[in-house]
Structures are given as C-alpha cells and as structure tokens.
Design a protein around this nucleic acid. Structure first.
Lengths: 337, 337
DNA sequence: TACTGGCACTCCGTACTTCCGAGTGCCAAG
DNA sequence: CTTGGCACTCGGAAGTACGGAGTGCCAGTA
C-alpha cells in the first residue's frame, strides 16, 4: 500500500510541519530533503497519502498537514525515541537529586519535565493501592478533634481530621494507637478492611464511639478514595500555541483532576512510553492535543504515571525521550527512599 | 479639584467600562445614567478627568477608559464592597464545611474563590512562623532512611526524609522521639533552636550522629525555610481576557512561587481587603492585572493571605466582597480545627 | 459662571477590491 | 513509473472607500 518512499515523504512532512508550523508543499519537500525525485512525483505520493487519510490540506491549493492518523503512523513506525543529551541527563540528576520528600520529588519532577519539553507536564502521585502501612499516629489537635496520620512505605503521608463527640483521654488514644499499629504494620492497603474488622471487639465499651469514628475515617481515606492526586506545571507553554480548540477548553481540562487521571491513567504497561494523539484522547476539550506518558516506579512495580501534554503538532521523538528519561530517574529516586 | 459630578462621571465610566469592555463616550454616559446634564457638559468633565490622569482615550476620537489611577480612586472613594448574596454565602459554607484536612481546606478554598469570582484565585498556606509544635514522630522507612514528621497546631504536617549513615535501632529512635517530644511540645517555632540546643548532651555517644542528622533536618524544615507554599486555580478564566501583556507573561508569573508570594504578601493588615492595581504590582509580567487580597486567620492572628488576580478591568466591589467573605469563612474553619 | 446645542474634524473598524504567489491536479511525453 | 509543463484555485496582503462614534471648540443662553 505505502512503499518506502511514501513513508519517507510522510516522515518528512511531519518533521517539516513540526519545525515550521506551516503546511508543507511538494516543492519545499524536495528542496529540504534530498529525495532523489521531482516535485511532481512527490505530488502524486502526497495525493495517495491524502486519500488514505494520513495528511490533509487546510484549504485547496495549500500545502499538506499531517492528520492524527498520520502522526500515529509516524510515531509507531517512522520515528525513534531520541535520547537526551548528556548535559540534559546531568541536569535531571542534579535537579531531582536534591529533593527533600515526596511532595518535593513530585513538585520538582513536574517543573523539570515542563521545562525540558517546553510543554505542560503532568505527574501523578505514587499510587496508594500498592502501598503498605508503615505507621499510624493519632494526635489530639483540639477539644473535639483528632488528627489521624498514616505513613506509607512509599514515603507518602496521609492525614485526616476526625471529629469526636466529646473530649477523649490521652489514654484511650494511646490504646487505640497501639492496637492500630499492631494490626496494620506492614499491611497492604487492600487488606486494611480485613485487618481492622475485629478491632472494635478488642476495645472497651467506653471507647467504641472513638474507635468507630477513627476507623471510618481511616477506611475512607485509604480505601474508598481511589482518586489519586495529580499536579501539573508549565501552563504558560500553552500560550504561544494556537489550538483549533480554544485555549480555555484546554486550561479547563487541566484543572479537572478526573480528566487528568484519564489522561495518564488508562494505559497499563509500565516503563514503555505511550502516546495518545488528538482525537484518540478521551476528553472533549483535548481533541487538538497529544499526550505522551509513561509509568514510573521502583523496580518492576509501576507506582504511577507521568507525562506531557502539548499540541498534536509536537516533536514526538524528543518529547518521548524526555518523558522516558524523567520517568526512569524518578523511579530510581523513589526506589532509594 | 474634582467636584461631585466629576466623581460621579468617573464612577460611571468605570462601571460601564467594566461591564461592556468598550471605551465609553459622553453620549452613552448621559443615556445610561441619568446625570441631569447634557453630553457637552460631560465632555468638559471628561477633559478635566483626562488632564488629571484618571482616564485616557485609546486613540483620538474614541471613548474614555479608566487608568490605573482612575481605578484607584474608584476603589478608594467611589465604591463600596458588595456583600455576597445569601445563596452564595450558603454555597461557601457547605463547600468549605466538608473539608477533610488542611490540604483539602486550601484546595477547596482556591477552587471556590476562582469559581466565585471567575478569575484566578491564589491561596497561601497558613504560615509556619506563628505555629507551635504539637507532636514529633520519627519513622524508619528504609535501611538508611528515616521519615521525620512534625505536626503543628494549625493542622499542618511537615515531613522530611533523613539520610542516616548506617542502620538505626528502633530503640535509639524511640529514645530520640521521646526526648524531642518532651523538649518541643507546645513550643513555638521561633523557640525551637533554643529548645533543642542542649539536646545532644542528653544523648549517648552512640546516637550522637543520628541526633545530629535529625536535628539539622528539623531546624532546616521548620526554621530556615521561610518560603511558604502557595497554590492557585482558575487559570482558564484568563483565557478570554485580552491583556495588553501577553497571556504567557501572566501564566509564567503565576507559576513562580516567589512572585505569588510578593503578590499577596506585602500588605500587613489582617482582615481588611487590599487592592493592588496594574502598575502598582511589583512584578513585570503583571502590569496589566490587579490583585485583590485579604489576610485570614484564627481570631486576631493572621495566618496567611489569599486573593484573586484578574484584569485591571474587573468588578472590584464584587470581587472584594467575595475575597472578604471567603477569607472570613476560612478563618472560621481553621479556628475550629 | 456654568451649561447647552451645534458643527467641523478625526480616525477606527469594516467591507470591498485587487493582486500576487505558492501550491495543486492533470496530462502527455520520456 | 517518473517528469516537465500548464492551467487553475484560493488564501493572505495591501490598498481604498466609507460610515459612525466620539471629540474639541465656540457662541449663545440662563
């Protein structure tokens, strides 16, 4: 169907269009890339490519522009991920190396990725579902309020306020804390409900209400809440892009946690870089953007995903290289902690 | 200098320009507001107002537009803060009422404020400097790493990873934890360095390195780090505004923590609403925006600030009303916890 | 002195027209 | 299958015309 030269033509069109942001014509193509044929031949090839839906012209008598399908073919078969320069690798290493805690790692990662790709970066916090409980703490913060702190093995710390009906003695709290830690130490989050199921029975009648309140908050925060936290950075990089959609739609989508989740979340495989192009995107407002994403984690365990969002007209090889590199480094950092 | 009618004219110009986004002419003014005079009279007044620098015309033979100085006069003398409707108040109450923890309060607040004003909302996390230590926790998370968790009376939880030179026994940790809590319970952050000064002496020689590492991290995270966390939301609301500056500049400024700090931070007084208009802004990229900010806190203590950023052409009375209301509610919520 | 009606003038924004050139599709010849 | 040639299309830039909103100024009036 598509011989080698036609593929080369498509590749050339994508590359030129990405770098110039202008529809590319047959003449310009033969000038810039030394394909050994004339522009007329290229025109024929382009006609075929257009018929097959890989390219299109904005209006009659204009150059050609890749379609989503064209980009897809380019990403799948015509390009290779471009590794970062050693300078860039060093920059990543030093920048991420100085991070304090999980928040800081994620914050630095998202800013780094935005700067590296000059696009919008999106990073998901490491998933709760694979984590295990390392420690539970209960602290009174006011007469009727307790703070429940759960520390997980990923370095993540979950906090929740608990309202109590009346004042609670230090002793009751200490007792409950000890019980909880005994039950839950090293416990996977999935097993938490089971682990605490018989806990109320071990508690004196006086402390039952307290235990009930604490447990319901605990379960809610760790188990029921499947939503994961997501942050983004680099919105300014969208400003000089002209979307067919309004910029507003894109910005709105970015502020919806749910949308961001779907953006990164759906693909399963861990360390491979996945690309979703234009209309392949689930969300309405992101029909003119592409997402390049990858999973990251410690060892073979994927903890979460991160990625980059930009116009469909983006430099896929470089972007994919940056995403892959950052994902790996973050994994390493997290593995160390 | 400016008699009552001229002030009324200025007020009318600001109001009309804010609502229509078009330069307002003398004819339109007498039509819409029933000032009892003819358009020629208004023209004379406008000439004076222009001479004094309160209004300007984009080009000859166009209507007038308020200058920053004009908005300033409007805000200071010609307008009153517009209280929210009771429906809005109820919405705030229910929306903020359901918050889990500090992160959640701040997150909800910033989204609420953005939606309420249809502009960009900025919220600063409650300041550390006024807080006191409620609890210190040390938890091993890996062979060579500890997690230090400090819980403050504001509900804020600070976490830091600590690298140790070698494995540390549970016993050493328990000992140090107990010591720290004894020293620091209820201690104001300013007093922390003093409180822990003689702590190393109470520790056995074996645990000195551990104590040193923990203390340096503790001091660094609580005392040295004056930067405060700031979040924003509602960037999408900027999309349909046409700035004289590029949108890019504004978005870039928004992602700079430091810039955001200065944006809210400089004014001192607690619960009063302050407005900074256009060029009054410290930052280069925000010369065509205004900031409406207020402090919030528990009782008479200002913990931090929050506010709204929008085009200089904004509805100041309503925005100020929303900011003031939200600041008060957040203060109440925080006071309760 | 302050206000008003009238009038000439300015100039932005819109609409209309023209024109150039890049790019295309097609065809007949190599 | 490739190539040079050619007629055709159409978008974007540049130029022109025009209406209208708005202004400044002035002389007249209460």
């Amino acid at each position: 169907m598509l011989d080698d030269r036609k593929l080369a033509v498509l590749r050339a069109i994508v590359e030129d269009y990405v770098s110039t942001n202008e529809p590319v014509g047959s003449k310009a193509l033969v000038d810039r890339h030394n394909l050994g044929v004339s522009s007329a031949t290229i025109r024929n090839d382009m006609a075929v490519l257009e018929e097959q839906g890989y390219i299109t012209q904005p209006h009659t008598s204009a150059g050609r522009v890749p379609t989503d399908k064209g980009y897809r073919l380019f990403v799948d078969r015509l390009s290779q991920i471009k590794p970062l320069s050693s300078a860039e690798r060093r920059a990543i290493e030093t920048f991420l190396g100085g991070a304090y805690d999980l928040d800081d790692v994620v914050g630095r990662t998202v800013r780094l990725l935005a700067q590296l790709t000059r696009q919008v970066a999106v990073v998901q916090y490491p998933s709760l579902t694979r984590s295990t409980v390392r420690h539970v703490e209960i602290v009174p913060v006011a007469a009727h309020r307790l703070l429940l702190v759960v520390i997980l093995n990923t370095g993540r710390v979950e906090q929740r306020l608990i309202e109590t009906l009346g004042p609670v003695s230090e002793e009751s709290i200490g007792h409950l804390r000890a019980l909880l830690n005994t039950c839950l130490d090293g416990c996977g989050l999935g097993e938490v409900p089971l682990a605490v199921a018989d806990l109320p029975e071990k508690i004196g009648a006086d402390d039952r209400p307290l235990a009930g309140a604490v447990l319901s908050v605990l379960l809610e925060s760790l188990v029921d809440r499947h939503e994961e936290k997501i942050v983004f950075a680099g919105a300014a990089n969208l400003a000089h892009v002209d979307f067919s959609q309004s910029l507003r739609d894109v910005l709105e989508a970015l502020e919806e946690q749910v949308v961001l989740m779907r953006l990164l979340g759906e693909t399963g495989d861990s360390s491979t870089v996945t690309v979703r192009i234009g209309t392949e995107n689930p969300d309405e407002g992101l029909r003119s953007t592409s997402v390049v994403a990858a999973g990251y984690g410690t060892g073979d365990m994927t903890l979460a995903r991160l990625g980059v969002l930009g116009p469909t007209r983006m430099d896929y090889p470089s972007t994919m290289g940056a995403v892959r590199a950052v994902a790996r480094y973050v994994g390493q950092i997290l593995a160390g902690s």
